[in-house]
Structures are given as structure tokens and as C-alpha cells.
Write a protein that binds this DNA or RNA. Structure first.
Lengths: 208, 208
DNA sequence: AGCATAAGCGGACTTTACCCCGCTTGTTAT
DNA sequence: ATAACAAGCGGGGTAAAGTCCGCTTATGCT
């Protein structure tokens, strides 16, 4: 077991490390969920079916993920790690090095692409009770935007609110597209238009 | 039966007027739903309980509203009518007469107040599948915003996208508040902060 | 008035998310 | 090692959303 998986010194305040069998089961469930998703689509991924196919009890699924939406959130978080690494240490303008305004614009465009690519899973994650608005990914988006905003001279502005507004404005067109479209022919078109819209909005908002 | 309830000449393209018994049942169900909501809260408003208390079959409830969330959407639309009248013919700056920029700012602030006042129902309406993003109320919000934007000189901008972005930015802080807060002590504070944030965002976005 | 028919109705039935709680197992301190 | 105990597990049980389909009734036409 690598040091990455289990730090020698656990973070203070962290609830408690997961037991080895719990980690194994989580991985097993996530992998099985991906299989089922690829083979049969979102609807057929029921809690019973997942448990049975993973040769585990239903109770275990709930212990690991809390709710059905929790599974999808976990899947997205998994994929998001790569995305986050690009933010933190990838090449500019997404990664550090470019001027903050350029990074902000690049961020939105990358984010739109990411969401559209993972639209099926995101859609499923939304269906559960307030899973997404309070969820990890959205607040990550907000935190990143706020971090960049801080580096841009904006006069006296409530950066927390502005970050919330901008991240909502970023997701908004995407959510609309999700709920309006069942077949995804125009995914590319939507993506381009949303990306351009984001670019314009940031220009408007952040000019001196 | 008044002409308002049943126009003499039905609109072309309208699917078909509801039958008299259907109208009666819809009203009955909506009224009963409001009672139950006031007495027992959102959770106790189940489809079975509603049907039984309204002395109707469950099938009828589904025929009228489609889904559980549909009931809440219907309730909100009911309340929204008053709000809409204020927009269309009330006093400025919300109603017509004031400069469009002022109207836009006033709109957001009134909308925040409306949402916070109806937070319980809105929350319940959100829980159903894509009920809200594609729902009537949100698109009304968007249409109103777009209508006002058209009257403001903004250079070459994609007004459709901008309207989507701004309406999302308007709802965003509110949704966040919904999912983060269970008890509503700070409703007033949230409302003020969101209202101020909206004011600032519009100023930034719409300045020449 | 009488008829044809589409709309509406009811409630049993199915499916599925989520809860519960007694049993098992990994972990840690002695 | 081993004991003590918290964490994890399993799967039967429950409640509630949503579906189905045969029966009833309003409505519009003749």
C-alpha cells in the first residue's frame, strides 16, 4: 500500500481513516458502477443491482455512498482529480503562469468541456436531493474562481458573492442544455456558445 | 364561470381545454395540498396522503400533475401570477416606466425576496427531475431579463446567453443558501446580501 | 334527446430508494 | 498474542413514487 493511499500521519480533524475492507469495497463498487453505466445506462444502475453484481450487501452500498446520487458524485470526483491537477500544476493558461484574467476565462471553458463530456453522470448526480449545489465539485469551482478573482483588481466587490454568481452563470447554460436536450447532437455547438458566453461575461465583469 | 376561466374562443394550438371535472379536481388538490403544507410540512405531503385527504384516487393526482414535484411547481405558478402582474403593470421601478437598468436591478431584488419567501415550496419543487431548470418560472425569469437587456445598449452581445447567465447568477446564491441552511434565521441577511450582489453584478455587466 | 368518443378516474400493483439492527471483522493498545 | 471495541457488513423490511388498465362521465355532434 503506497504512502499516497495512506499518509503516515493522518490529518488532525479528519474523521478517521477508512478501514481496509471499506476501501476495497468502495473501489469494487465504483468499478462495478462504471461497468454497469457503460453497459446499461444510468437507469439500470439501481442500488440492488449494483450490490448484487459487486457481490456485496445493499447495506454496504449505503454505508459507502449514503445515497444513490452519492455514487455519481463519487464517480465525478474521481474524474475531477485529473482536472484539478491540470489547474494546480498543468500548463498555462489553465495552470499557473498566465495572467489571472486569462486563467479565469480558460477555466470556464475547460469546465464547460468537462461537464459536457460527463453529462450523463452529472445529470444523475443532480437528481438526488441537494447533492450537487452543496457538493464538493461546485464548491471547488467556486473556490478556484474566487482565488483568481482575488488576483484581479476589482475595486470594492463582495468576492464571495461574485464567485457564487459567476460559478452559477457558468453552470447555468449547461444545466439548461441538460434539461432541454435528450439527444446530444448539438453538444459541440452548446459547448462553443457557452464558452464564448463565458468569455464575454468575464470581460464585462472584470474590465476596470 | 367567468370568461377569464374559460375563454369563449380557445387559442389555436392549445392542446385542449380541461374538462370541468378535471378543473374541479385540480383546484381541490391544490387547495388540499396547501392545507397539508401549512399543517404538516413538506415531507408529509405524499401522493397517497394527498389523494386520500382530497377524496380522490392516486391516479387522478398523477393525471393532473405528472409528478410529485409537479404539485409544487403548480403551487408556485399560482403565487407567481401576482408577481407577474407587478412586473407587467405595477408601479416602477419593478413595473414599466423606469429606465431598463433600474428595472433590471429591481427585478432581481424582488425575485430574491419572492424566492426566499417561498423557499419551502421551491426546495420541494427542485427535488423532482429537471423540474425547475426547464420549468415555467425560470424561463419567465429569463424572458423578463432578456426583454430588459434588449433595451440596454450593450454592444455586440449574445443576449440569450447573457440572460441565461444572469438568471442563473440570480438563482445561484439562493440555491446555495437553500442547500446549506436548514433553519432560516439568516433569511433576511441572505436576502440583503444577494440583493446587493445582484445590484453590483448588473452595474458591472451593463456599464458602457 | 341520444349517441359516440375522448378525457378522466381509481386503486391495485410494481419498483426502488433508504432504514434497521444483529452479526462479523479489522485495528489498536496492552 | 489477544482482548476490547469501533467500524463495517448483510439482507430483510418499509414507505412512497410512479404505472396500468378497465370502468365512468363530460362534451359535442346529429
Amino acid at each position: 500500500m503506497s504512502p499516497v493511499d495512506r499518509p503516515v500521519l493522518p490529518l488532525v480533524g479528519a474523521p478517521r481513516a477508512e478501514r481496509a475492507d471499506a476501501v476495497r469495497n468502495r473501489r469494487q463498487l465504483l468499478a462495478t458502477a462504471r461497468e454497469m453505466l457503460a453497459e446499461q445506462g444510468v437507469d439500470k444502475l439501481t442500488m440492488d443491482a449494483l450490490a448484487e453484481r459487486a457481490c456485496l450487501g445493499k447495506g454496504t452500498v449505503y454505508r459507502r455512498f449514503g445515497t444513490r446520487a452519492g455514487i455519481f458524485v463519487a464517480l465525478i470526483e474521481d474524474d475531477e482529480q485529473i482536472f484539478q491537477e491540470r489547474l494546480l500544476s498543468g500548463p498555462p493558461p489553465l495552470g499557473p503562469g498566465a495572467p489571472p484574467l486569462d486563467r479565469l476565462i480558460a477555466y470556464g471553458q475547460a469546465r464547460v468541456a468537462f461537464m459536457i463530456e460527463h453529462r450523463e453522470i452529472v445529470r444523475a448526480a443532480i437528481d438526488g436531493r441537494q447533492a450537487v449545489p452543496a457538493g464538493t465539485e461546485m464548491s471547488l469551482s467556486r473556490m478556484h474562481i474566487r482565488m483568481l478573482l482575488r488576483q484581479i483588481p476589482l475595486g470594492a466587490a463582495d468576492l464571495d458573492i461574485l464567485a457564487i454568481q459567476l460559478s452559477a452563470a457558468l453552470e447555468g447554460p449547461f444545466l439548461l442544455y441538460l434539461s432541454a436536450t435528450d439527444i446530444a447532437d448539438d453538444a459541440l455547438h452548446t459547448q462553443e456558445r457557452a464558452a464564448r458566453g463565458w468569455h464575454d461575461l468575464i470581460q464585462r465583469t472584470c474590465r476596470p
